[in-house]
Design a binder for these strands. Structure first.
Length: 458
RNA sequence: GUGGUUGUAGCUCAGUUGGUUAGAGCGCUUGAUUGUGGUUCAAGAGGUCGCCGGUUCGAGCCCGGUCUUCCACCCCA
């Protein structure tokens, strides 16, 4: 029986135009990744569950798509687990694989597994889809692409500087000018929690602080209280709520606030180095802003934290994020390997560029020349000309059947083909071809013996 | 996972307190147009009203469930 086709929630088909536009973005990103010395890798779309589970916190585990075992997966479950109706215990028995949730954890696994074949420091990039069992909303899908560039095996802060430049270079070339690259440091957040005496509530503290521009000072205080952070501690942290001024001024204020914390002071020193070095090198169109409230992202960051905000005129979450993680491969048994990386959110960048009308018009053109098909005999000659054009790197095609000219021209019109070539009986006889300029409506005749004269027009 | 929202022709949307045969614009097909698309004119095709169930003499409209869309929260690219 015929069933109405449909897509799973949060997934999309991409039309030819959309794919052209998406490719345009990824080509730009890829080009600059390679110019910065990153090497491409790919990893499987699914991993063993234990590789992924527990790496993204409780919330992350919930959002991981799990893959049902094959065969008689129920028969393999022991009676006790089966009867317990404990979803997570049962899931562990009937599912051993899961879809990739991000590109960083699979990369960490990759590094550990291939440690003997890799020359460190290893700079890799990876552009692949990831899956999250999230509820879709604006700019949020269950299948989406991340474009990651990470360096492992060296912990120079110059890498942070370079990654900021990389962000700037890519967004500038895409025409996404004036993007704000937010920078924070986990050590600063950690130091703050220490100073106010809430070190064990670091995550709750930072998650609440992150919402400052969204829910305001009172909202943040309320959330912190709800999470069990004492009022006295919140009072100590209050200078944070009203930080303002330039990056330098904010750093000065933080420096004095954190002078008692060794870790916090280290974080400040890192921020200061990155800030001053980036400033010395200069950015093309983006601006770097230090933001101590920035805490979003994965909780494995240990140093720098990046987030790229969409341009203000567009209502969209962040279009990129990243940071430094000193310990990631430690989970897989490889200690003391530091990594730092950034990610571009392809799907959101697409939406922002679409909204701002930043895609070049040339992407719309799928065909430069279409040859009208007048019949078997004319088609052979037309095909010769089409081959000639194709060899000259022109996107050319012959209409496959000798349908009515009206239909063929309408097809050319709908596909926005700028030039249509006509080779009918008459042209065949005097070895010529007619080129119709679809925009102007004008026609010019060329000799089949000198097709290169037409090439000059293109 | 929580709360709200949406679904009618290929697309964008009308559709009255529940009442015969569900409409429009755009698009599509055919013709005016035997070598010419866009403009015009004429004709035509296209819908189990997301799906399942319920209430009713009668449901696109009311009720329940479910899927989907979009939005907020959580979290995040």
């Amino acid at each position: 029986m015929a069933q109405k086709p449909s897509l799973p929630k949060g997934t999309r088909d991409f039309s030819p135009t959309e794919v052209f536009k998406r490719n345009y973005i990824t080509e730009v990103i890829k080009k600059h990744f390679e110019r910065y010395g990153f090497l491409p890798i790919e990893t499987p779309s699914f991993e063993n569950s234990e590789t992924l589970l527990g790496k993204y916190g409780e919330e992350g585990d919930r959002l991981i798509f799990r893959i049902l075992n094959s065969g008689d997966f129920i028969g393999a479950v022991d009676e006790q687990t089966y009867r317990s109706k404990d979803a997570s215990a049962l899931a562990g028995k009937i599912s051993e694989k899961a879809l990739r949730y991000d590109l960083t954890v699979p990369f960490a696994r990759y590094v550990v597994m291939h440690r003997n074949d890799i020359d460190f420091p290893f700079k890799r990039y990876q552009i692949q889809p990831v899956w999250r069992a999230d509820r879709p909303q604006k700019g949020r899908f269950r299948e989406f692409y991340q474009c990651d560039a990470d360096v492992v095996g060296a912990n120079s802060l110059l890498q942070e500087v370079e990654l900021i430049q990389l962000y700037d270079t890519v967004f500038t070339e895409l025409g996404l000018a004036g993007v704000q690259i937010k920078l924070n440091n986990r050590k600063v957040l950690s130091g703050l929690a220490e100073i106010i005496g809430a070190k064990d509530l670091l995550v709750d503290f930072t998650v609440a602080l992150d919402k400052l521009d969204k829910i305001g000072v009172e909202g943040v205080k309320t959330e912190m209280l709800a999470k069990g952070i004492p009022a006295s501690a919140i009072a100590l942290a209050s200078p944070l709520f009203s930080l303002h001024g330039t990056n330098i001024e904010q750093l000065e204020a933080l420096k004095s606030l954190l002078k008692e914390s060794e870790e916090g002071s280290k974080g400040i020193a890192e921020l200061e180095f990155i800030r001053s070095t980036v400033e010395a090198l200069g950015l093309k169109s983006s601006r770097l802003s230090i933001d101590v409230t920035l805490a979003r992202g994965l909780n494995y960051y240990t140093g720098a934290i990046f987030e790229v905000a969409s341009p203000e005129e567009v209502q969209m979450g962040s279009i990129g994020g990243g940071g430094r993680y000193d310990d990631l491969t430690g989970i897989f048994g490889m200690k003391d390997v530091s990594g730092v990386g950034i990610s571009f959110g392809l799907d959101r960048i697409y939406l922002v560029m679409e909204e701002l009308g930043l895609f070049p018009e040339s992407l719309e053109r799928s065909l430069d020349v279409l040859c009208v098909n007048f019949g078997p005999k004319e088609a052979i000659t037309a095909l010769k000309l089409v081959s000639f054009l194709r060899n000259a790197a022109i996107k050319a095609d012959l209409y496959p059947t000798d349908a009515k000219m009206q239909k063929q021209l309408k097809y050319a019109h709908n596909r926005q083909v700028p030039y249509v070539i006509l080779i009918g009986e008459e042209e065949l006889e005097n070895r010529s071809f007619v080129v119709k300029n679809m925009k102007a409506g004008s026609q010019t005749t060329y000799s089949l013996d000198r097709p290169e004269e037409f090439l000059q027009l293109l």
